[in-house]
Design a protein around this nucleic acid. Sequence first.
DNA 1: GTTCCACTGGAAGACTAGGTTT
DNA 2: AAACCTAGTCTTCCAGTGGAAC
Length: 348
Amino acid sequence: MIVDARVLREGFVPSELEHRDGEVDHLSGVLEPVTRGEPAGPAIITGPSGAGKTCVARYTVEQLREQHLDVASQYVNCWQNYSRFRTLYRVLEGLGKTVDIHRRSTPHDELLERLREYEGPPCVVVLDEADQLETPDALYDLHSLDGFSLVLIANREADLFAGADDRLASRLQGSERIQFDRYGLDELTAILRARARRGLAADAVTTDQLRTVADAAAGDARVAISILRSAARHAERAETGRITDAILDAAVPAGRSAVHRKNIETLTPHQRALYDVIAEAGTIDPSSLYTAYRDAVDDPKTDRTVRNYLSKMVQYDLVEAEGASSDRTYRVVDPTADARETTSGNQS
DNA sequence: GTTCCACTGGAAGACTAGGTTT
DNA sequence: AAACCTAGTCTTCCAGTGGAAC
């Protein structure tokens, strides 16, 4: 029943984009100078998660490279490569210049030096989730190098500038802005239709069903595709030949929690223990949390470290913190709950 | 209004793991 | 082998915040 699983995978970039022509044109316009070997100004792409930001950026850069031989590019997800070192390392990796660089003993300056020495064709660097960078150093580094053109992706522009000092902020101020909005119901349905056509057998799913998926995903294409993928897998395993309504119903929460589960798996044992304590308590105040955590593990970390873990989990959208100082409480996020307009929801 | 208290999160330095040089 | 690098993690210290008790 599944004809081509790649199409339903996270990070798949289709050969034709639906409903994002304007944004693609805008971005390729901004990057146009690199086709003449000139540096292009930075572009800042913002919008809610699942609005197609990453997809458009990768697609546009891909097109650019197809049409012009002398363009290099590298995509870096700053969520995973949040330090200056890792970001620069990734960029060098894309240029094939990391052969003799080792993780622990090479200083930042060495990486920067290599980037400076780079003399190949202009390179478009896409920094996805750029607001997740620990420090803006990497932005600064890359921005100051002529051979590299930056495309920065973030949920909100304010997050991007939060960590930047005045100098960097004012330099980025002149960037071209490309704003994405949530997909509408019809648009999202069309996107699912296109994926289903390529990825699934002909009669595997009806348009009505796709509409249901699109509706459940509330404008988030990533969630929508995750739901469809989950449903398709179940149908395949159950050998029903097509996606039934019952399978689809079950797939909605499963699709929604897929990202959540993946995030939980990235937690260290200590972080996991902390998460479990919160999950078990439902809602818990900080001092009880610290105590329960200390009881739950051998050789517990300090409270300060626990607070760092907590803020990481809040960023991952695994845990919610409510209240400012003395009336703070923590609770785990329920991934199967209906999509909420208020939360930023951010993962790759 | 003042003091107390619980809590947060920034800064600086110690520690660890991995890698290189002598 | 030992001495010396570095990035990343963790701890120590502490200023700041806001609610509660006095």
